[in-house]
Structure formats: C-alpha cells, structure tokens
Simulated scan of single mutants.
Amino acid sequence: MLVEKTPATLCEIRTRVYHALQRHPLCRQVKFDVMQTPRSRRGVNWTVNIRAVEARALWEASEIVADIQDAYDLAAA
C-alpha cells in the first residue's frame, strides 16, 4: 500500500523532527540538521544529519527520524 506523503517545508520538517526528538527522554540532547537532497528513484528529497547523539539514544533517534521521513515530502518551492 502506497501512502502519499504530506508536503512540508524544510523549516516545518525541522520543527517536527525537533519536537519528536524532545518527546523521547533519551533523544532530548540530539543535535541534527535537516538538508535538502536531490530527488532519487525512491522520491527522497531531504535527509536528517544527526551530528551529536548519545550511543544509547542512537536507535530511538534513528527510528523517530525514519517515521518522519515516511510521512513528509519536501514541498515544492
């Protein structure tokens, strides 16, 4: 089943990632950047670069980011 992603700006995606990470106690200190990327065959056009994360929070932060990537597509400028 293919679900259409919700369009969002980079700023909106940053905000959503930030708030999602803040809800998890292990992920509150994660430092990240959201960056636009070229569109691929999979349709991915943005990514999250995690710059700082505690080892025990890596799995949770990765899962949170993956869930957001599954839900949002970068809105056309």
Score class of each variant (00 low, 15 high):
E63T: 04
T15C: 07
R39V: 13
A55S: 11
I50G: 00
W46P: 14
L2T: 14
M1S: 11
P25S: 04
R28T: 13
D33V: 02
V65R: 01
V17I: 05
V48R: 12
P7D: 05
F32T: 02
N45G: 15
Q22I: 15
A75G: 02
L58E: 08
T37S: 11
K5N: 08
R51I: 02
T15H: 13
T9C: 10
S62T: 02
T47C: 13
D67K: 06
E63H: 06
I68Q: 06
W46S: 12
Y18M: 08
L58R: 05
Y72A: 03
A66Y: 00
E63W: 01
G43E: 00
R14L: 15
W46N: 06
C11H: 13
A57M: 03
R51Q: 15
V34E: 04
A52F: 01
R39L: 09
E54V: 01
A71S: 12
R41L: 14
N49E: 11
E60A: 09
P25I: 03
V30C: 01
V3A: 13
D70E: 10
I13E: 11
A52E: 09
T37N: 07
V30S: 00
V44K: 13
L21Y: 01
A52R: 08
W46M: 11
V30Y: 00
T37C: 13
E63P: 01
A66F: 00
R28S: 12
T47A: 13
V53M: 08
E4G: 12
K5A: 14
R42M: 05
F32A: 12
A66G: 04
L10C: 10
I68S: 15
R42C: 10
R51D: 01
D70A: 14
V30Q: 02
V17M: 07
R56H: 13
P7M: 14
H24Q: 14
Q36G: 12
W46E: 10
V65Y: 04
R23F: 10
I13K: 15
A77Q: 10
K31P: 00
E4R: 15
L74E: 06
V3R: 13
I64G: 12
N45P: 04
K31H: 07
L10P: 01
A8Q: 14
Y18D: 12
W59G: 12
H19G: 15
T9G: 03
A71L: 10
L74R: 05
R41W: 01
Y18E: 08
T47Q: 02
A77I: 11
V17R: 02
I64A: 03
T15I: 04
D33P: 00
A52L: 08
M1E: 07
P25E: 02
F32L: 07
E54S: 01
A77L: 10
W59I: 09
I64K: 05
I64M: 15
Q69T: 09
R14D: 07
H19P: 07
R56W: 07
M1V: 11
F32P: 00
R23N: 06
H19N: 14
